[in-house]
């Protein structure tokens, strides 16, 4: 169980937090009471509270287990030998990197990862470039126009993306954009509405007087955006870009249609290459999956501090 810990910080922190709590539960029960009546009632109340806490935490732990176990199982399995994949023992008894060697050797995994990173970064960047000015403009509209425009933007989010697949596919085919980055990236911008809605609330949280002060200080509209609004939105931009990046990274359907060619394919449909004529090669497939997950975990670890940064609301008044 050492290797799962290294990859899944959730498991570590949760384990670390719950175990001391339970040990604390068991220890303090009989306080040396002077008068018998009151301590007993207090003790029973305390016991009830502890029982409640134990119950809640058991439930939470179960929920965490449901979510984390499959991932841990896949992780463990990716270190197993081909013969041991279906063992009942979840732990790889003779861990091997053979699957990773096969995955990286037989298929251009690094190429796929690079493609995916480029695609996700491109989608994220373009969405932010559109969403930040859009959110800023949206906030500036009078309330009624604001409501109408917000409703229109939300409607774009309600359109199932699958229904757009065929027209979009025809469009990029006519443009000759199949197996190109523009063809891969641009149609994914249909989801920009989500970024606009998320950023809108953060733009609204910036006091209008601060923006007014910048205008009075002689800042041109672009400078208000660049020198005042963007720095104030930085934590929000971090959070939103993580979300956008992960969403795009995990996109399966569109990349598999738009760029089936291995030179432009992204990692998620790329994993399908492991499903060969002779049947699925589970070891390398799982190894590839783990490699596909790794960058996301890395991004989150690096950037999550941005999300929790309480910078925004502390500087004003």
């Amino acid at each position: 169980m050492t290797s799962p810990d290294a990859v899944s910080p959730v498991g570590v922190s949760l384990g670390g937090a719950t175990i001391p709590r339970q040990s604390g539960v068991l220890a303090p029960t009989a306080p040396a009471g002077t008068s018998p009546a009151r301590p007993r009632r207090a003790a029973s109340r305390r016991a009830r509270r502890i029982a409640g806490a134990v119950g809640r935490h058991t439930l939470l732990l179960a929920a965490v287990a449901v979510m984390v176990l499959p991932v841990l199982w896949a992780l463990a399995a990716s270190f197993k030998t081909p013969g041991g994949i279906f063992d009942e023992n979840p732990l790889p008894m003779s861990p091997t990197l053979e699957n990773y060697r096969v995955a990286t050797g037989a298929f251009p995994v690094w190429r796929l990862l690079l493609n995916t990173a480029a695609m996700a970064a491109g989608v994220t960047l373009l969405q932010l470039l559109i969403a930040v000015p859009a959110a800023y403009a949206l906030v500036r509209f009078p309330p009624r126009a604001h409501r109408v425009l917000t409703a229109l933007i939300v409607i774009t989010l309600l359109v199932p993306p699958q229904s757009l697949i065929i027209p979009l596919f025809l469009m990029i085919s006519h443009l000759g954009w199949r197996n190109t980055y523009p063809g891969l990236v641009l149609p994914q911008l249909y989801g920009t509405g989500l970024a606009v809605i998320l950023l809108r609330d953060h733009v609204r949280a910036v006091p209008p007087t601060v923006l007014g002060a910048a205008v009075l200080d002689g800042a041109r509209p672009g400078e208000v955006l660049r020198l005042v609004l963007l720095p104030l939105l930085r934590p929000a931009l971090g959070a939103v870009s993580i979300l956008l990046f992960i969403t795009s990274w995990n996109e399966y359907l569109w990349p598999s249609l738009a760029a089936p060619d291995i030179d432009h394919a992204s990692i998620q449909p790329g994993l399908a290459f492991f499903l060969t004529q002779e049947g699925p090669e589970y070891g390398p497939l799982l190894a590839g999956s783990m490699l596909a997950t790794l960058p996301i975990v890395a991004v989150y670890l690096v950037a999550s501090r941005r999300v929790t940064d309480a910078f925004m609301h502390s500087g004003i008044r």
Partner: peptide, 27 residues
């Protein structure tokens, strides 16, 4: 910005991400 007018806001509207010095010399 070009009227030669300065305004002190009720909430002071300082730029939270700038130091006192930067706030003052921004304009």
């Amino acid at each position: 910005g070009e009227r030669g007018v300065a305004l002190v806001f009720q909430d002071f509207a300082l730029y939270p991400h700038m130091t006192v010095e930067r706030n003052i010399d921004f304009n």
